[in-house]
Nucleic acid binder design. Structure first.
Lengths: 243, 243
DNA sequence: CGCATTGTTGATCTATGTCAAGGACCGTGG
DNA sequence: CCACGGTCCTTGACATAGATCAACAATGCG
């Protein structure tokens, strides 16, 4: 009897995965997860490497184990826009896809579960659970993209930065403190922050220091912020942040 | 034998529908379409009426027959942002959903096919074709939302307006002219245009008149533009427009 | 210890948002 | 038919947020 063994192996494979409890993987039962894991091959992408050139997202499907990816496009004027972040548990290749004009790059070192496209398609047919998870993810992505456009359209750069700070704890290292605040480790460099919220490095830097002056945050170092007053930070942003 | 008759009725029901060849409906076979149509009830929404208050999108699913809807949110600062347009063939209630902070309103008089949610869910289970069509639509919406955020983030108001003018012919009345240009009937009033591309009425107006000065368009009247030079109009926007 | 990368700060300039007024258009009712 | 009010659009004057350009500081790495 090899199947139970393979199941066990598969579950072991997922045990330490940062994506195990999020997104697609998070909504799968052990049984389904085991079937999925059996077909997976793990690959790594170093920070700032591009995924498309790895041929992923062209003929493969991938699930993010750990790390973070950015989807980005360049306008002909040379301006880069990050249109979304891909985090552990997210899938790449179905809904999220690098195309001629949308590249997917690693923000930090990232590990992926890689699947042959045909192989995965088969799985989708066989596992309604997986199908539903992917559909659900599709809805999520639409919702996220819509919120980003709302954020960009309805608020100025400083408010957009506040929104980012408030959303970051759910996708970046976050150490909650007893007083309700917490320490955020910002994985994105200033330029990425700027390209995500559609502003410039300089404005990001100035706004952060303004927040510090206002007592909203403390800049512990370039990549670590202590968020002191989540309440004040979220002023006027309710409809973006909820959920 | 009643089934064939009902099929025929159903197909008749769809025959004149503007959405018949687009979006969800466009990718369904006559057989599936007939099954879907059998469960539909047609309703109308007058221009500027809100769909949620009609209880649609809460306990119903709808397919757009004709007209146009806008999805919109208000920031607390009072600024409205249109996050997407819903056109014939699109579905409402699955992916696209009015929520506490996203309202769906009619831009112009609109007709919908309305379904009981439970009823429709059943259909989805039974018809893989429909399932695929809805999934495909989900991908489309994500792609559209992503493009909107790219447009908002990477380009200024004037470029965004150019992009809108170039995309409009696919969803608004358009009369192509032999010289390659054409006459566009803009269904959106200035304020809606502004809220879609995240600028102000005034800037929209000024930009349009600037385009006229530059010979790119002629403003025949407030709602009709002759687009003279699609080439020049699309300068620098390639990655937004393709497809 | 250079050197490269990343982040900060200052000075300047302009696109565009805001405010305010006026014009065009349309339907209604006298 | 015209006067009226309403909605939608246009135009002008003005102020300013934030982009741009440029220099410099901090950090990390070989």
């Amino acid at each position: 009897m090899t199947a139970p063994l393979r199941n066990a192996e598969a579950i072991l494979h997922c045990a330490g995965c940062a994506g195990r409890n999020h997104g697609v993987c998070g909504s799968l039962s052990d049984r389904t997860l085991a079937r999925v894991a059996q077909r997976a091959r793990t690959i790594s992408v170093a920070a700032n490497d591009r995924l498309c050139e790895e041929d992923v997202s062209c003929h493969h499907i991938a699930l993010v184990q750990s790390g973070m990816l950015r989807m980005q496009s360049h306008s002909l004027a040379g301006r880069r826009k990050i249109t979304g972040l891909v985090v552990p548990g997210d899938s790449i290749g179905q809904i999220i896809r690098g195309t001629r004009d949308t590249a997917i790059e690693a923000v930090i070192d990232t590990r992926l579960c890689l699947f042959e496209s045909a192989n995965f398609a088969q799985l989708i047919e066989q596992e309604p659970e997986l199908r539903r998870a992917l559909c659900h993810q599709a809805e999520n992505w639409t919702e996220k993209a819509r919120r980003l456009s709302l954020l960009l359209g309805a608020y100025g750069p400083a408010s957009r930065l506040r929104a980012l700070l408030l959303l970051a704890p759910s996708i970046m290292p976050w150490k909650a403190l007893p007083d309700g605040g917490g320490v955020l480790t910002m994985l994105l460099p200033r330029q990425d922050i700027a390209d995500l919220i559609a502003t410039t490095q300089e404005t990001v830097s100035r706004s952060l220091h303004q927040f510090q002056k206002d007592g909203l945050i403390d800049i512990l170092n370039a990549r670590q912020f202590r968020l002191n007053d989540l309440e004040a930070l979220s002023e006027g942003l309710e409809e973006i942040l909820h959920q």
